[in-house]
Nucleic acid binder design. Structure first.
Lengths: 102, 102
DNA sequence: ACTATATTTCGCTAATTAGCTAAATACCGT
DNA sequence: ACGGTATTTAGCTAATTAGCGAAATATAGT
């Protein structure tokens, strides 16, 4: 789970994830959207893969990346939960500014 | 918004935020929960403050930190939104494995 | 003015990270 | 086997980060 947040900490990686929303893309397709060298992006892919945020699938000579939505959902809702942010249903515990002893 | 994700990328900082869920705590109170030197924690507080995830309030010689829930909510739901993760209401667009040209 | 307590700032080190170019690998077509 | 295209690995540099101890700052009480 830490890996997920580490992965999300970089803007380029977040943008990669956004691009993948529309469907799988090859490394090259993604690279076309960035002003970064391909090896740099390949590194980002590796981080995303290790966080299990994307899956890889080779198809001939090109490699397609596919968003792994459920992992992201789980991480985010896990954090929200641990923070007590109600997702709508879970009635907020809301400690509401309990002023300290003063 | 980038600052928020950067801030969330560190486990100690996430734990600090969790502690603050229950209500405001002084820097010293928080420090008692960690095995880190106070200057180190002070640095974490600074990061959280710059991300606007916590507010500071001096009370005599001690400084209380208070969770800024709304900023976190906004950042997370902003990300979920940009990722197309429905928060319940927004019907998922769900591109669902559109296999590429093949 | 002095002492004590709480917290931060300073100056440093070690580890991590994002970026690059060049070289290696993998697969396909001929 | 060779050449071409797609991507990754290797090896490097510069920037960032988390950690520390020591010193500085801020406030309160005497």
């Amino acid at each position: 789970m830490n890996r997920v947040f580490k992965a999300l900490a970089d803007p380029s990686r977040r943008r990669i994830l956004q691009l993948l929303r529309e469907g799988p893309l090859s490394a090259g397709d993604i690279a076309r959207h960035f002003d970064l060298a391909k090896p740099t992006l390949s590194g980002h892919f590796a981080v995303l893969r290790e966080a299990d945020l994307v899956d890889q699938e080779r198809q001939g000579t090109t490699i397609y990346y596919r968003l792994n939505l459920s992992v992201m959902e789980e991480a985010l809702s896990g954090l929200m939960d641990s923070m007590g942010i109600g997702q709508g249903e879970r009635a907020a515990h809301s400690p509401g500014l309990v002023k300290p002893g003063k």
